[in-house]
Structure formats: structure tokens, C-alpha cells
Simulated assay, not measured.
Amino acid sequence: MNRLERIKGCLLGGAVGDALGAPVEFLEWPVIEAKYGRHGITDFTPAYGQIGAVTDDTQMMLFTAEGLLRAYVRGSSRGICHVPSVIHHALLRWLLTQGEVPAIHVSADGWLISEKALWARRSPGTTCIGALKASQHLGSLAQNHSKGCGALMRSAPCAFFAKAFDYAAEAGRLTHGHPSGYLAAALFADILQRMVDHAGSLEKAVVDSLATHGHKPGMREVRELLERVLFFVREGYRPTPERIGELGGGWVAEEALAIGVWCALTADNLEEGIIRAVNHSGDSDSTGLVAGHLLGVEYGAAAIPARWFQRLELRAVIERVAEDIVRVPRDYCGYGGEEDGWIEVAYPGG
């Protein structure tokens, strides 16, 4: 499987998990079971008035990807670029699509913001909205102590650039001030990067990522929960709605990451893992997105069932972003480089 197929699988798989979990995000497991049967939700059902709708998680993931691509253009044309500030600018464009007014001027250029479907408001997280509205300058850090999962949800595109861990951590701090909030995002991007670049197993990627980053300051909560999941997997404990509930609801970053990793590690295929990840009494769309990103990298976009793939909102947009990302040199890290004429039109760097 080539790099493009892994990147497409990652981004599309995350969006599929997001869309499958969206209708049950705020439902307790007994309610989900009563409504959909003992296996829970297994197919797209209406959310936000349509089938296959994604949430703010996928929207912000796409704008994060746009920010990274614009940073490449800016770094190539100017020789240096502060990547988190360019991602911040992209996230403020997302804020515009939600009907909010940033405190600083935002350029509404580029092709992504013109996609009408991205202007839908899909229960955006109050932490992200509040932090972005409060920003007084590009690159300013969030003035809160939140460890909600909003930074984690949008961090996958960082995996496809050289400084994945650093970019995801710095971008996470734009909206989430608690170390678990932004370091879970950083570790997730690092795990995905190891899978994309080295085509290794998910378990090895998690173990290696923890060995490299697990003892950094502020990482304790994230590390301990992932180590608990690795223990579960090695002891043969498979996730059930009840067991997931004992681990957590996924509303905070370390829990969402742990649940997604657990469901992905114990699945025989992408479909099984995503279904497990959304069927519990918690943040179903977020945990489904995490599992979908991981399983999409592992199995590729071809593993997504046709009944999901064909009805996924923004599918063509996600595929275009993946194709654009793969055209950037994988070792690009924010300084200099050569860029083609096509990318400056699509992703103006300012």
C-alpha cells in the first residue's frame, strides 16, 4: 500500500467514524441498544438532517490540514514559517464558517472555505469556539485549563509532516491549555506518523511512541491510560460498551485516545473497530474518529465499506486534501523548500 492510500484511508476513516457516531453521541448505551439492537448502531442514520453527516471534528481536521499546506507555501516562498500561527489562521477561518466573528482579521481566501458544506454548524465544542474567539494574535495560546478532546480530534493531518508531535502539540495549545489536552493530540499524531512512514503495526507504533514521548512532562495521564489499554489487549480483554464505560466516556483527550486505540487494536478489520468505538455511553463520534484514523492508516481507504464510503459527507473534499498533502515533501519541517505553482493558488501562504 502506498503513502497516498494510507493518508486517504486515515482521513476518510476518521470521517467515517465521526459520521457513524454522530447520531448517538449524546446517548447512553442502553438507549443505543434499545434503538438499534444488541450490536448497536452499525450503519449511517440521520444526523443534522442528513445521512453520513460529519461533525465539527472532521471540519476542524480539514482546516488543520489546510493550515499545514499553507505553512508549506509560506515556508517555501519566504524561507521560514511559524507553522502553529498558520494553523491558527486556518482554524479562525473555520470559526467564520460557524457564524462567529474572530477578534483579529482573517483572510477568507483559498478553496476550502468556499465549500458550502463546511459552513454547517455541527454542535461545535465550546472550548474551541471560546478559545478561538478570545485569540488576540496568531499563535496565542489558550487561556484555559481544558483537556477536552477537541485538539485530539483535529490532529491527524500533522502526522503527514516531519515534525508531527511538535506541530500537533503546538496546534493543540491554541485551544486547550491542559497538558493532557494537547499532549494526547501530539502522541496521536506521532503514532499515526509511525504507521504511515514505517508501515508497522498499531501496537508497535503505540509502544514506540510511548517509549519516545511517554515520560515527557505532563504526559502521565495519557501514558497511564494507554499502558492500561495495552495491558487489556495483551490479557485478551476486548472492548464492550460496558468496559469502555469503565475506562471513560471519551469526553477528555486521554480517554478518547485510549478508547480509540483499544477498539482499533482488538479489531479484525476497519468496520468492526469503528462499530465498537462508537457504541458506548460517551463521546461516540470522537472515539469513532480516533479508531477510524488508526484503522484507515492500517488498512487503507479500500477497506471502508461501500455503504459508508458512498454516503460520506465531504468525501471528495477529504480525498482532495489527502492528494494535496502527499505532494508535499515528507521531510518538510517549516523552513525553505521548493513549491509548485499549483499549491500557491490552492493554499495561499500570505
Rank of each mutant, 00 (worst) to 15 (best):
I80T: 11
L4Q: 02
G292A: 12
L118H: 07
G21T: 09
E100C: 11
V321A: 04
K147W: 02
T287N: 06
G177T: 05
P157I: 05
R320P: 03
G282L: 05
G334V: 11
G273M: 13
Y237N: 12
G334F: 07
Y347F: 13
V106F: 15
T175N: 03
K133E: 13
C128Q: 07
R194F: 09
H198N: 07
L312Q: 02
I51G: 14
A159S: 09
A90R: 12
R307L: 13
R173Y: 10
N279R: 14
S76D: 08
L187C: 06
I244G: 04
I129F: 04
Y332E: 05
R6I: 01
A151H: 11
W308A: 08
L294Y: 10
D268G: 13
C128S: 15
S155E: 02
A267L: 00
G110T: 10
V229R: 12
E203N: 08
G245Q: 07
V321C: 04
V321K: 01
V73C: 06
G248N: 07
G49Y: 11
E339D: 01
L69R: 09
G349A: 04
A15I: 00
R74P: 02
H89A: 09
D18Y: 02
H293W: 01
T42W: 08
V73I: 06
C333L: 06
L138Q: 02
P157R: 03
E170S: 05
R220S: 01
K8A: 05
E319I: 11
M1A: 15
G300K: 06
A258S: 13
C128E: 07
D268R: 10
Q136T: 13
L174T: 11
P84N: 06
D18H: 00
I191V: 15
W342Y: 13
G150M: 10
E235R: 14
V54N: 07
S281M: 09
G79T: 11
G148H: 00
I51E: 14
T266K: 06
A142D: 11
Y36E: 05
Y182V: 00
I51Y: 11
E323P: 02
I244W: 05
N144I: 13
I87N: 13
K35I: 13
G21W: 01
P348V: 01
